[in-house]
Nucleic acid binder design. Structure first.
Lengths: 347, 347
DNA sequence: CTGAAAGCGCTTACAG
DNA sequence: CTGAAAGCGCTTACAG
């Protein structure tokens, strides 16, 4: 019962009167070991509360059981959802997860990849969409290449333009198209969009998809009906505010993120515009509180947790497949009370 | 430029024509190394994109640079806030963070501690409040004891009754008292409380603190004015619903979590009770969307990120202090539009 | 089936 | 100041 400060495999082996090799075998369930030795090892390990040194194991096996996650910021609801899915699956597969946040610094992302290469993580999951920046992309690809050359797998959750990685994502463009179709189906003809910074590809795709579907329906979306803003509440507030000055005739506003929609809602309320009475409003993402807003928010629900789960499945599946493979999981429109049919009704 | 799949310290040493010991010294900035050798090592490391094997380092140094975080569920806004603070500080201190979630399974928490002991994490951070369960506490203390015996530090963020750990927390009781004082100051005399499961100590403390302050003010809080519910939106909805049947005369409802307040708001709206016109409502926690609700929610803001930052600071500070030390960071009342003075006004 | 031994990639006294 | 060598705690061919 008086155990040394750190119980090693040798301690267990000694207590069980076997060799370290044998102890290792029974503890790892490898090979066949005589029943009585087996018992003794197991008993010794239990009574000593042996926990194998993960570093020694990783070193000896030249591989570890940890998957590294790099995200922009854990406080982002989308990241939280994805990471939640990752952690669930990791837990099922008995993998540990190591998380690093870039807090918006692209250089830091490259640094994290290097660090994770040193940590010998089994896979790196890049959570969150990217942006266009050739110089950065090249540096990042170099770092990723060094990592994958060592046998590591990397999969992106979300679109990462220019990176040589496998991807699991939900179609932003497709989702926005579906949403537009639904809104048009409810009779809306005059739209405005609260767009994000063009450099954020996921958000740009949402705008593009929305516009495409309107075009298909023969509906206009003139530049003055598109207001850009930061992809958060305040950005949505400001963008909506600007639109209110010039947006006469609009019956429905699409915000490319739910966060922006939340801000837009506040702006509309502030200006005495009833939602959905005078103006319908839709967001994108279905963050947890979308349904608790007043009115509850119509939006495109992203399968965040599924994306996370799928990403680790792809990352750990054996057999190196070809690179740059893209897998999609569809989102779906969630119709809530922030959207009402126009008086004209369904067409 | 043709680098081996895995660049080791020996590769760097060879390329620089020095011994591994010397290479190690310059890379770690330890001891003094002749300037030209230094240069050569640095150049070699850079050109080979050398990243030290973290496992080998941890093994050789018998310590690692990772801090382990165990939380209930990352999707919990409170956990997210704390973890965010942890990650920021970890990033500043150049520590990696490994996260595990229990998803509500106490046994799993013990297992995670054992796993982290094996991972030789430098510190374990227990994020989230606990509950009373002597058998579990004993088992957990045993596991924690084994970990700390190996030199590890553990600090709890939130109250963990019965565990031998250092704690960083915000006073739930004190916060609830502050909130009650504010509400009473606005003229309210007839309160109801949406309480959580008594086993969750943090929530029980909030109820206790609230009640204490009412008592001090000579105000009643009869049992029929306390409705228990799950500490989430639906629990709040159900509890508020129940209260509406019997709660005549109440002018202010306190929900022990913001999530419950969100549900209560929906229930009140559903029953046509205007907030704050006919009923004021306050929550606890100040989750990100508290300010975006309609009406925006009065609540007790918890310093989540600070708690996280402080926890890692405490965990890595050198010099083992005495155990079971408790450090508090005060929250503060945030008065928003879900609360209005009663017609009677300030007393 | 079992054990002695080498090796994983570092760090760090210990000599020189 | 620098290097050869031992050691960190495991795993895994390789013999027996």
């Amino acid at each position: 019962m008086t155990e040394p400060t750190r119980v090693t495999l040798d301690d267990v082996a000694q207590a069980a009167a076997v060799s370290a090799a044998t102890a290792s075998r029974v503890l790892n369930g490898i090979g066949t070991v005589r029943a009585d030795l087996r018992e003794r090892v197991l008993a010794a390990a239990a009574s000593l509360s042996y926990a194998p040194d993960a570093h020694a194991q990783a070193l000896a096996r030249a591989s570890s059981q940890v998957v590294g996650v790099i995200c922009h910021d854990l406080a982002d609801p989308a990241a939280t959802g994805v990471v939640r899915g990752i952690m669930r699956t990791a837990s099922e597969l008995d993998l540990r997860v190591s998380i690093s946040a870039t807090f918006g610094d692209p250089e830091r992302e490259i640094g994290h990849v290097a660090a994770m290469r040193g940590q010998r993580v089994r896979a790196i999951l890049l959570v969150g969409s990217g942006f266009e920046d050739p110089a950065w992309q090249q540096a990042m690809n170099g770092e990723l290449g060094r990592y994958t050359a060592g046998g590591g797998r990397v999969v992106a959750v979300g679109r990462r333009p220019g990176l040589n990685v496998d991807t699991v994502r939900s179609g932003d463009r497709t989702g926005a198209r579906d949403l537009a179709r639904t809104l048009v189906g409810l009779g809306h003809r005059d739209f405005a969009v609260l767009a994000g910074p063009p450099a954020l590809t996921a958000l740009a795709d949402r705008l593009a998809g929305f516009r495409e579907e309107l075009q298909r329906a023969g509906l206009p979306l003139p530049p003055e009906r598109i207001a850009e803003g930061a992809p958060n509440r305040d950005g949505g507030y400001a963008a909506a505010h600007g639109l209110l000055a010039s947006g006469a005739g609009v019956t429905c506003v699409f915000a490319v993120t739910d966060e922006m929609a939340v801000g837009a809602l506040a702006a509309l309320r502030h200006h005495g515009v009833a939602v959905p009475g005078r103006m319908s409003l839709a967001g994108f993402g279905d963050i947890p509180f979308a349904q608790d807003l007043t009115p509850s928010l119509t939006t495109l629900a992203l399968p965040l947790e599924d994306l996370g789960r799928r990403a680790v499945a792809v990352a750990v599946r054996s057999g190196h497949t070809r690179r740059n493979r893209v897998e999609r999981i569809a989102g779906h429109v969630v119709l809530r009370s922030s959207v009402a049919p126009t008086p004209g009704g369904r067409r």
